[in-house]
């Protein structure tokens, strides 16, 4: 039996929205609990009775009820548009990330990798809009830091992704998973590290959260946001974790390939790997202090970029030799 086209499209759109709304909440809740336990606390315990599982839903309700403040001096249209612009790139990115083998992807694209890297870069515009339109020196400083950081880390991110695309000989995300072999874990290890770290910086997670830096810049480019718009920015951050974790999984950890039953349980392997990488994102946040702005740039240009370039040479050498 074949489904009518409209039904299939509807199911795929619904799937993307479900992933877009559910996975970030799961990651956020995990962050609450994991961070708490890593600091010897319990974290949320009341919301939803059992170990605070409904904490983020309660947070959402709270955010909706809060007053939506727009600063008097702000550029109102740009200020109000920024949260939406922050979310859209990640929504587009989720569309092309494959969950399992075959048809288990919202929209298979020949150039999925390229699309993802392109739209993730658009997120900077939202940050600049938010920071500038708030008419506040802290937000502007945060936005400028973010722009400098994102422009710098885009380079190692793209280079590391290029390495794996070169190894697989395709830009299609599904194609890369198809071509992936377990020994690539070793071969592409430097690229994996570079991609993960640059991805952390792209989504401005600690230790690369100098643009937000609550001890220096109040809350960076988010200082003036309240209520639902602030919640949208937070959602964008957590969707960002999911997207970066999923990309790391698909590009470097073999996506749906697991120890057994790849064809049937592929989606499970993907979700497990995404969960594991998300855990590492949270783990790194809890363990390390924030990098200073100059250290941040130094780490990118003197650490990640040379490693990524060396990895490209290595990939090309192995590719030519075999």
């Amino acid at each position: 039996m074949t489904m009518p086209v409209w039904l299939e499209i509807a199911i795929r759109v619904a799937g993307v929205f479900a992933a877009f709304l559910v996975l970030p909440l799961v990651v956020g809740q995990t962050e609450h609990k994991v961070m708490a336990h890593m600091q010897g606390r319990l974290g949320p315990m009341y919301a939803g009775r059992f170990h605070g599982w409904a904490q983020l839903i309660a947070d959402g309700v709270k955010f909706v009820q809060k007053e939506d403040v727009t600063p008097a001096a702000a550029d109102k249209h740009v200020f109000k548009l920024a949260p939406a612009i922050a979310l859209v790139p990640y929504l587009v990115a989720i569309i092309v990330i494959p969950l399992g083998p075959g048809d288990l992807v919202a929209q298979p694209l020949d150039m999925g990798l390229f699309l993802v890297l392109a739209v993730v870069g658009v997120g900077i515009v939202a940050v600049l809009m938010a920071g500038w339109a708030s008419a506040n020196k802290y937000t502007l400083l945060g936005a400028l830091r973010a722009a400098a950081q994102l422009l710098a880390y885009e380079l190692p991110l793209v280079l590391a992704a290029a390495s794996v695309a070169m190894a697989a000989g395709t830009l299609s995300l599904s194609g890369i998973v198809e071509a992936w072999r377990p020994w690539w874990l070793l071969w592409q290890l430097p690229a994996l590290g570079v991609f993960f770290l640059a991805g952390l910086a792209e989504i401005r997670r600690p230790p690369f959260d100098a643009p937000i830096a609550d001890s220096e810049l109040v809350f960076g480019y988010l200082t003036e946001y309240t209520g639902l718009r602030f919640a949208l920015f937070l959602l964008a951050e957590y969707v960002g974790i999911v997207v970066i974790a999923a990309l790391t999984t698909v590009l470097f950890l073999g996506g749906w390939k697991g120890p057994f039953a790849d064809a049937d349980l592929g989606w499970l392997w993907t979700l497990l790997k995404v969960g594991a990488v998300s855990f590492v994102v949270i783990w790194v946040r809890v363990s390390f202090p924030r990098l200073r702005v100059d250290q941040l740039q130094r780490f990118c240009w003197l650490g990640l970029v040379p490693v990524a370039l060396a990895q490209l040479v290595l990939t090309a050498a192995v590719k030519v030799a075999t």
């Binding site: 390229f114 392109a118 900077i124 422009l151």
Partner: peptide, 18 residues
Amino acid sequence: AWVQVLIYVGAVVVLMLF
């Protein structure tokens, strides 16, 4: 199209705004 987004929207305009 994606090069346009990556280079012009993601980098050149951002640099100008910066």
